[in-house]
């Protein structure tokens, strides 16, 4: 589905993404983890042709994404509120997105009915513009607008941030359903529990490089926790964390 070759992005002398090769197969569900500044969002943006890479290229279904329009027909992504048209009501936005994919209003309504639980009565028919919704509710609008497009490739950047615990569980189920339907999903998150629960392949990024690429199994969560906990004690020599250190090393 997605091939990444020799991809590199440099911001004022600092390499923020450097991926020699990455292959994401059809139907895989990928979890992207890494600390702030690891390059997750930058990688997302390059896959979506929103940032010009210094070198290398990304191909989607064999076609380079750069300059192409074809991948837009089967790709749906929500990275941040910048993807929402914030002066529209959620309904108007859904109809707009649906319309781009030749869905009639009735059809869109039908699909939205299926997400009534997910919306928890806070989105539709509230008489609010998207800009007046809370950040969590904006995320919900963004995620559902992605699903509305019936994508083959679904990309979500930190979808678990800002949403309440109940919705987080519902979202996990939604992502699992999509994966079961054969949709390729790429999800980044800081919540290691969620990401190991949902995804069957984890990419761990550090300073722009993918330093670990592993299939999820029972030991993945522990392995990830170990990586992140150690990283913390090296940079933050606080007394409490020094206590944890020996435990984690055993």
């Amino acid at each position: 589905m997605i091939q990444v070759k020799e991809l590199k992005k440099v911001y004022s002398g600092v390499t923020v993404v450097n991926i020699p090769a990455l292959e994401i197969g059809k139907g895989e569900s990928i979890g992207l983890v890494g600390n702030n500044g690891a390059g997750k969002t930058t990688l997302f943006r390059m896959i979506l042709d929103l940032i010009r890479p210094e070198s290398g290229q990304v191909t989607s279904n064999g076609e380079p994404v750069a300059g192409g329009e074809n991948w837009k027909t089967y790709t749906a992504a929500y990275l941040d509120e910048g993807f929402l048209i914030d002066y529209l009501t959620p309904e108007e936005y859904f109809y707009f997105i649906g319309g781009l994919h030749q869905l009639s209003h009735a059809h869109v309504d039908d699909i939205l009915n299926g997400y009534a639980d997910f919306f928890n009565g806070e989105i539709l028919k509230k008489g609010k513009y998207i800009r007046d919704l809370s950040k969590g509710n904006q995320t919900k609008v963004g995620i559902v607008s992605c699903l509305l497009q019936r994508p083959d490739l679904l990309m979500l950047d930190e979808p678990f941030a800002n949403i309440d615990p109940t919705t987080q569980f519902r979202l996990k189920n939604i992502i699992k359903e999509q994966a079961a339907k054969g949709v390729t999903t790429i999800v980044s998150s800081h919540d290691l529990n969620h990401v190991t629960d949902v995804c069957d392949r984890i990419l761990l990024m550090e300073k722009g490089k993918i330093i670990k690429d592993m299939a999820t199994n029972s030991s993945t969560l522990g392995e990830l926790e170990q990586y992140f906990a150690i990283g913390q004690t090296v940079t933050a020599p606080a007394a409490t964390e020094l206590n944890i250190d020996p435990e984690e090393n055993h």
């Binding site: 929103l50 910048g82 997105i97 781009l100």
Partner: peptide, 14 residues
């Protein structure tokens, strides 16, 4: 500007 990213990714040809 505030939703240009979204426009570029959605199925809208320029």
């Amino acid at each position: 500007a505030s939703h240009f990213d979204g426009l570029m990714v959605s199925k809208v040809s320029f």
